[in-house]
Amino acid sequence: MKKLSILPHVAVTTALAFAGSVAQGDEVKGNAAAGNAKVWLCIGCHSIPGYRADYPMTYKVPMLGGQNAAYISSALAAYKNGERKHPTMRSIAASLSDQDMADLGEYYAAQTASSPNNPLK
């Protein structure tokens, strides 16, 4: 019968626990007020009711007020890393930091579907 060493199992468990705590420590917290200063990137399309973008195909552009903050942030990250393919959104998202995405998510989550999506009015 072979003796199994517990040392490799302890090392792997410790490494996984440390990696999990680092990932949680890096979580970005969004700020709606900070998002208000960054929303100018979005209002050109997302503040026009019924707007449709037509490059490279016709897309119905959604109004974002009241949307879940985490959803907006993750959607922007998906555009940035290429999981979502719209070329305009991808180029805009490429310029955003994780903090910017979280701030924009919180800004739109603080709105309602009927609130003005254009803070510059």
Rank of each mutant, 00 (worst) to 15 (best):
S74G: 13
H86C: 06
G65H: 02
V28I: 06
L104N: 04
Y79H: 08
T58I: 13
V28Q: 04
G20E: 04
A93R: 01
S115Q: 06
L41R: 14
K38W: 09
P49E: 06
P56M: 05
A11I: 14
A94Q: 02
K80I: 09
N118T: 02
I92V: 13
Q111N: 03
A32W: 10
D103H: 08
G50R: 02
A75Y: 03
M1F: 15
L104V: 04
M57T: 15
P62G: 03
L64S: 02
P119G: 01
W40M: 13
Q99H: 06
V22L: 11
A75G: 05
A109I: 10
V61C: 01
P62F: 02
N36L: 13
M89E: 04
S73L: 04
V39M: 10
L4A: 05
L96A: 01
T112S: 11
T58H: 06
Q99F: 12
K80F: 08
P119V: 07
L16P: 05
K38R: 09
E83N: 14
L120K: 04
Q99W: 05
V12M: 08
V22Y: 10
S114Y: 10
S97I: 04
Y79V: 01
A17I: 15
D100H: 04
A69K: 03
C45V: 03
M63R: 08
E27G: 07
Q24A: 15
T58S: 10
A77P: 06
I72P: 01
S91Q: 12
N31Q: 09
V12K: 10
G35M: 05
A19R: 09
S97P: 09
A78Q: 11
A34S: 06
A94N: 09
P56S: 04
Y107Q: 01
N81L: 12
R52A: 14
S115M: 07
C45P: 04
D103N: 10
Y51Q: 09
